[in-house]
């Protein structure tokens, strides 16, 4: 599997990341190095082996339906680049 320049641009678009044109080739190269490294796994025969979801051999722990958090709007908004009237604000996103 190989990544081409178009795929790099598409992934950048989907992730809302700005990659300058002169960095695209470098990024393409990095992607391919990572993929090639992971690709080594395909050398292992996995016929009949169920996909592994977790290395922890435990069950999912569930929470009781109880309200334990909240009333901390100030803390929640503390790192917001922009906030107003208790809301986060962002550049207008209407389709």
């Amino acid at each position: 599997m190989a990544i081409d320049k178009e795929t790099v641009k598409k992934i950048a678009f989907l992730s809302h990341l700005k990659i300058d044109d002169d960095k695209i080739e470098e990024t393409e190269d990095e992607f391919n190095k990572i993929l090639n490294w992971v690709e080594q796994l395909s050398e292992v025969n996995t016929d009949g082996v169920e996909p592994l979801v977790s290395v922890n051999d435990t069950n999912l722990t569930l929470r009781q339906d109880v309200v334990t958090e909240g009333n901390q709007a100030d803390a929640v908004l503390k790192n917001a680049p922009q906030a107003q009237y208790g809301y986060f604000t962002v550049p207008k996103v209407v389709e």
Partner: peptide, 14 residues
């Protein structure tokens, strides 16, 4: 999201 509180911003309530 609320889009009508300001002309250039959207307001987000989590």
């Amino acid at each position: 999201s609320i889009h009508d509180m300001a002309p250039d911003k959207s307001f987000i309530d989590l």
